[in-house]
Design a protein around this nucleic acid. Sequence first.
DNA 1: TTTATTACCTATTAAACTGATATGTTAATG
DNA 2: CATTAACATATCAGTTTAATAGGTAATAAA
Lengths: 143, 143
Amino acid sequence: MLISTKGRYALRVMIDLAENQKDSYVPLKETAQRQEISEKYLEGILKTLVQHNMLTGVRGKGGGYRLTKAPENYTVGEILRLTEGSLAPVACLEPQAKSCPRMAQCRTLEMWKGLDQMITQYLDGITIADLMSRDVPGFDYVI
Amino acid sequence: MLISTKGRYALRVMIDLAENQKDSYVPLKETAQRQEISEKYLEGILKTLVQHNMLTGVRGKGGGYRLTKAPENYTVGEILRLTEGSLAPVACLEPQAKSCPRMAQCRTLEMWKGLDQMITQYLDGITIADLMSRDVPGFDYVI
DNA sequence: TTTATTACCTATTAAACTGATATGTTAATG
DNA sequence: CATTAACATATCAGTTTAATAGGTAATAAA
């Protein structure tokens, strides 16, 4: 599996915040209830998103979270890379991977690179706005 | 990560067997040494491939493994699905997944389906023969 | 100034998965 | 009957996953 609950939950929260934007902030509790996700678990995920300036978090009464940009300016790829760490399909293509000693003879490396590139292009080509509630029937992401 | 060592090793063994085809059988020991993979670990992987008729295994002296088909008749996708169990990018698209109660409201399902389909098409479009040693320069799988 | 709210922070945990190793048993050959 | 090599089953250490627990800090309202 390429994407765990961390990434999937992160996306759902971003969409939820986009769909429920107000002048004020949306408390985690609300989103967690709407999305039926463990509140405490979500905290850790949102922390990462705040640290990377995807969200603003404000404490205290009236506090909560808010998007820092318009929904169309977030790509699915960037959200997933932040929360998952990497979207590489194989270990050898992960950012922290040490260079493989079998690289020169590897028959599969180019294939993995192609897959990696394809996944990246697909996910970087979809924005949070694309995932928001809409009425256009039959709209989908099938290539 | 979508593909673990199980799938990667399986592919490397299939390529190795394809590149080292003989009239006789290739013992696991040889392949394991050439590919620098734990012999015992490989055993378990090849067992799966034999059970699904991707390979023939013969015991005893002179025994070993052999492809059951020509290299161009194996797709990378089928080998990986057998050894990895599934290539679904998210849990909800796995074969054994129970249908999600949030499906109707899910904003991301179509995106995941598109990704799944793209990955499947890519990996089912490459054969073991495509991965074998060749001289054509610049050949790669970049879309 | 106290109380309620809400984000932030750190640690722990049970279950599953990964990547192996260990120890055999069965079948084929010479 | 000895050697070879696949087949079979169990175990294991380490990591990851998906949470939970229990606090601290900041903000607003009473």
